[in-house]
């Protein structure tokens, strides 16, 4: 597979303040890559370095095999960027802004602008100053995607979008991904990343602390079991390797389990079951788990 983003030991200091330290990860072609961490962890610093808005103190970053600093202008022909907050020029109408944005790319974007503004239900004749925050965000989405970029970089993109519009936006991203676009999705809203991404990097205090595929994260993590049996469950019935937080109350047992799923299922099968639930932990819990572990 082709590496679309290749980051090697990227470090950025703001004077004596920390930015990011030795950040390294690769994003492969066609991936939707999650980049998660709380506010101030270094997500935006990493993204701004990729976009050559700021320059690295050390290390390197490549996009499409080209250096992010030296070849910035060439790289940006195929990048669509949506920041968390969008700001545009005063007095411009939506259509003027979109046409101005399109004028930077040597292609006719008019058809795609029409498609995207229809999807986003955007009135192109309105002045940008008169738009709500959510509608300005829609303008941001359209201007970020109108040139059909090969790489879409999203930095906390859903703030200001109502749930319905978020749904449309995610659908749009999935379609772009199916057409071949690679997506780097930075967020601190973990459910978004869980919903969309196939792989993720977790950043904490400027350092990458975990890189995993979403399936591997789900597989390798604790599952929550709740078992209700017809008869009383013995105190040490589920006392097998991998079981933690075991609580038994009469004929009900709840515990966390990590390990070979067959081993615990064999124990479950030994009971006359009335009800059972096996819950995958959500990313929030996984995220906290990594954060606590690294603390």
């Amino acid at each position: 597979m082709i590496k679309v983003i290749e980051i090697n030991n990227l470090t950025k200091n703001y004077g004596k303040s920390r930015g990011i330290v030795d950040v390294s990860f690769d994003v492969m072609e066609g991936e939707i890559y999650g980049f998660i961490g709380p506010n101030g962890a270094g997500k935006s610093t990493t993204i701004r370095t990729l976009l050559s808005l700021i320059y690295p103190t050390s290390g390197s970053a490549k996009i499409f095999g080209l250096d992010c600093v030296k070849d910035a202008a060439t790289i940006k022909k195929d990048i669509g960027y949506l920041p968390s907050e969008v700001f545009y020029y005063d007095g411009m109408k939506v259509k003027d802004l979109l046409n101005y944005s399109a004028s930077f790319y040597n292609k006719d974007c008019s058809k795609r602008i029409k498609e995207l503004t229809d999807i986003m239900e955007l009135d192109v004749n309105k002045k940008i100053d008169d738009l709500s925050f959510g509608n300005k965000k829609k303008v941001g989405i359209v201007q970020g995607l109108l040139h059909e970029p090969k790489l879409i970089i999203l930095d906390e993109p859903t703030s200001g979008l109502d749930p319905l519009m978020q749904q449309k936006f995610f659908q749009l991203l999935k379609e772009e991904n199916e057409k071949g676009a690679t997506i780097l999705f930075s967020s601190h809203i973990l459910s978004e990343v869980q919903r969309l991404c196939s792989k993720l990097a977790i950043i904490k205090e400027g350092k990458i602390i975990k890189i995993e595929t979403m399936s591997s994260i789900n597989d390798n993590n604790y599952k929550k079991f709740k078992v209700e049996a017809a008869d009383e469950i013995g105190e040490d019935y589920f006392g097998i390797k991998g079981v933690t937080d075991l609580v038994i109350k009469g004929n009900e047992a709840s515990f966390l389990y990590k390990g070979d799923i067959n081993a615990v299922m064999q124990k479950v099968a030994g009971l006359k079951i009335v009800n059972i639930s096996v819950i995958e932990p959500d990313l929030e819990e996984i995220f906290l788990h990594y954060y606590e572990k690294e603390a």
């Binding site: 976009l51 050559s52 808005l53 910035a72 202008a73 060439t74 790289i75 940006k76 022909k77 990048i79 960027y81 920041p83 907050e85 969008v86 700001f87 545009y88 020029y89 005063d90 944005s101 930077f104 790319y105 201007q143």
Partner: peptide, 17 residues
């Protein structure tokens, strides 16, 4: 001041241009 730098500087143009 108008916070439009991100818009302009993420376009495929060199800083010199």
């Amino acid at each position: 001041r108008d916070k439009t730098a991100d818009f302009l500087l993420t376009k495929p143009k060199t800083r010199v241009s």
